[in-house]
Design a protein around this nucleic acid. Structure first.
Length: 714
DNA sequence: GCCTCTGGATTTTTT
DNA sequence: ATCCAGAGGC
């Protein structure tokens, strides 16, 4: 095997630079994955490095799988010995093995977003704070941000500067306590606790460092400081660390990804080799130039430009539609037209958008035309109620300290344990000083001689023996059979089938059953561990399948790393892309630009930028001006067109009302002063505006009542 | 204890 | 438009 075959000089250099720190700057379509794969193959096949001592971190599980597959072709069996995965998956494994050193049981739970919100709300309650006065979401974001910067609750409290931060600090402390009680971690904890483990237990770190001589990090621009710190810890033994990224494609700052990691890398490893991959193999010259014209407006940016030997190609199509349904109809018609041409198949096409809500109109159009499509993300499988319920059952059986899961299933399906009984039960276990699950055990042992009223005692007793029987079962049978037992013994199956949309929900349950069945080859304990971990760390992009014969509908964020011959970007409007939440902040606005750049550079041959003049949004109608990004693309690269459908006339009153004030307009209010319209919805003959006023925040106003006047921006 | 109704908030992106 | 929490009736 020749790991260097077919590489250009820069790629070859990146593959061969095996010693010491390396920073690879890889623009879109520059063969980044190729470089990583060949670098690993080169390390193993030519340098004689053991695959056991290589760890490669990817952004998604899917990326890890694909890499594993390609390496399988190059290295055969040895590829299975590499450590490949996301930071989260790798950390979950490390904590499973060594978490005891930081107070974590072997069987801990991983809490997702919904669980976390629940814990924050409980924390607020415990502290006697009103969950309506303090938005749990905002608190959780603040806590997550702290964890992404390795700030513990104590440190946070020490350093809090404002009243809000003080509240966050108190909630953070409480939240951590609740997690510990439940033997649970959140996503950020997977990283932070691993880091803490390594820091506090040098002998454990040494073991991993000795194991990992070579550390690779993909999508480095989207790592957060905690992830970077982890990578440094792992690489500290040999300093053979290679990070690959592209600052222009950094689109996850809201998840605390920090571009400064790239600068820090050069500071932390001054001897690092920097290699730039700037030849693009993916797109036409026209597409590259158009994309560059959008991203190059950014001020926080080193000027780099990709070049390509590919043909000039077709102009970028810029299309104005009357409504989102016209926009969607155009997409479907155009896909059909290209299919008829013969050289394009449905899976060659992708439709991208800023927000998941936009997928709806598109989906309808595909359905109406009978065209095959797949939506990535959207209503997520693992967020469906029936799925969460069943996972809660399994999670509680796996980790009995997991009260969040227990409380979810205590009365699902209904078994007569209402709020009242539950409160009594909880205060009883509190008084006795035992965890909830132990309380249930005790009820089992004591039989009817418990301190509750007859009705409650009977209901609790039934739950207790149910739990006892199911946990006995969990030690004996594989995940799929355990799930069967849950469905049967709890009456959940009947409960689902009789519920509204029972048929559909039961199908979901069967799908989960199928996923569980894929863990059958493991012993009961390992199987349950692996299943729950897989479920927790699963991401929507993981299910993306490129060879389906279906057109892909996907958010711009999820599209990162993918490529398609034909790309449509829908909703090129002020308020959507860029999103109105970013109007006020230059850095965020620059990220919107990068997001647009990421979308455009997914396209190989054909790129369509679409917008709708009028769009339904939260019940009302909004009218958004064209995205400023469209204006940055030189006209010579584009071809413009308009589509107007039959159902709407441009001059209709509905449209007129919404057009009066548009998202992005600067306005003046007699009392509130200067502001920016962030949303306008037309409701019949009036429009309801949301305006962001300097210092006052968002206010909702009726256009007919509030005496607003348009003003010029500064 | 459970069901239904209402009003309010809520949607940006996700490991 | 849809989801949630809280109130009130059975």
């Amino acid at each position: 095997m020749d790991a260097l075959a077919g590489l250009n000089p820069a790629q070859r250099k990146a593959v061969e630079a095996v010693r010491g720190p390396v920073l690879v700057h890889a623009g879109p379509g520059s063969g980044k994955t190729r470089v990583i794969v060949h670098r690993i193959a080169h390390l193993v096949a030519s340098c004689g490095i053991s695959p056991h001592s290589i760890v490669a971190v990817t952004f998604t599980n899917k990326a890890a799988r694909e890499m594993a597959e390609r390496l399988g072709h190059l290295l055969g069996r040895q590829a299975g010995e590499l450590s490949l995965g996301t930071f989260h998956a790798l950390c979950a494994g490390i904590l499973r093995r060594d978490g005891a050193a930081v107070g974590l049981h072997r069987r801990y739970s991983i809490y997702d977003d919904g669980d976390q919100i629940g814990l924050v709300k409980r924390g607020l309650q415990d502290l006697g704070l009103d969950p309506r006065a303090y938005n749990p979401r905002a608190l959780l974001t603040a806590i997550g941000a702290a964890k992404s910067r390795l700030l513990t609750a104590d440190e946070y409290v020490q350093s809090s500067q404002s009243y809000f931060e003080e509240v966050v600090g108190r909630v953070y402390l409480r939240y951590e306590m609740l997690l510990a009680q439940n033997q649970a971690v959140d996503f950020d904890d997977l990283l932070m606790k691993t880091h803490h483990l390594f820091q506090s237990q040098p002998q454990i770190l040494a073991r991993y460092q000795a194991g990992y001589d070579h550390v690779l990090v993909d999508e480095f621009q989207d790592t957060n400081p905690t992830q970077y710190a982890l990578a440094r810890q792992l690489a500290a033994g040999q300093s053979n660390i290679c990070v690959v990224g592209d600052p222009d494609q950094s689109i996850y700052s809201w998840r605390q990804a920090d571009l400064r990691n790239i600068l820090d890398f050069e500071r932390d490893y001054p001897e690092a080799q920097v290699i730039c991959l700037d030849q693009n193999y993916r797109s036409t010259q026209t597409i590259l130039e158009a994309a560059h014209s959008v991203v190059s407006v950014n001020e926080d940016r080193k000027e780099t430009e990709l070049w390509t030997e590919n043909e000039r190609g077709l102009p970028v199509v810029v299309l104005e539609a009357e409504s989102e349904s016209d926009e969607a109809r155009f997409v479907v018609r155009e896909v059909a037209r290209l299919l008829a041409g013969g050289d394009v198949s449905p899976e060659d096409c992708a439709v991208m958008y800023r927000t998941n809500a936009q997928s709806r109109a598109l989906e309808e159009a595909f359905i109406r035309r009978g065209m095959p499509y797949q939506v990535i993300g959207g209503v997520r499988f693992y967020e469906r109620r029936e799925i969460r319920d069943l996972i809660a059952y399994l999670r509680f059986l796996y980790n009995p300290y997991d009260d969040v899961s227990l409380l979810r299933i205590v009365n699902t399906p209904l078994r007569g344990i209402g709020q009242r009984t539950l409160d009594e039960f909880r205060s009883w276990t509190g008084q006795v000083g035992i965890p909830l699950y132990a309380g249930l055990q005790r009820l089992c042992e004591d039989g009817p001689a418990n301190p509750f009223g007859t009705h409650a005692a009977a209901a609790l007793g039934r739950l207790a023996s149910l739990v006892r029987d199911l946990s006995a079962r969990s030690a004996e049978v594989d995940v799929a059979r355990l799930l069967d037992s849950v469905l049967e013994m709890t009456g959940y199956q009947a409960y689902i089938i009789e519920s509204a949309d029972g048929e559909e929900r039961w199908q979901n349950v069967l799908e989960l059953r199928g996923i569980a069945a894929s863990y059958q080859h493991l012993d009961p304990q390992q199987g349950l561990t692996a299943f729950l971990e897989g479920v927790s760390l699963f991401s929507d992009t993981d299910e993306l399948d490129e060879k389906t014969g279906r057109t892909t509908l996907i958010t711009l964020h999820q599209a990162k790393g993918l490529e398609f011959p034909v790309v449509f970007i829908a909703g090129m409007e002020e308020g959507l892309l860029p999103h109105f939440r970013c109007f006020e902040d230059r850095e965020q606005m620059e990220e919107e630009r990068r997001l647009c750049y990421v979308g455009m550079t997914r396209a190989k041959k054909r790129l369509y930028l679409l917008r709708a003049v009028r769009r339904t949004f939260m019940g009302g109608v909004t009218a958004n001006p064209p995205s400023r990004f469209l204006g940055d693309i030189p006209r010579k690269l584009t071809r413009s067109a308009t589509v107007y459908g039959e159902e709407a006339e441009p001059g209709s009153p509905v449209v007129a009302a919404a057009v009066e004030f548009q998202a992005g307009d600067h306005v003046e209010h007699p009392k509130f002063g200067q502001g920016v319209v962030v949303a306008s919805r037309s409701t019949g003959d009036d429009s309801e505006l949301e305006v962001m006023f300097a210092g006052l925040g968002r206010k909702k106003l009726l256009a007919s009542l509030a005496r607003l006047s348009k003003s010029s921006p500064e």
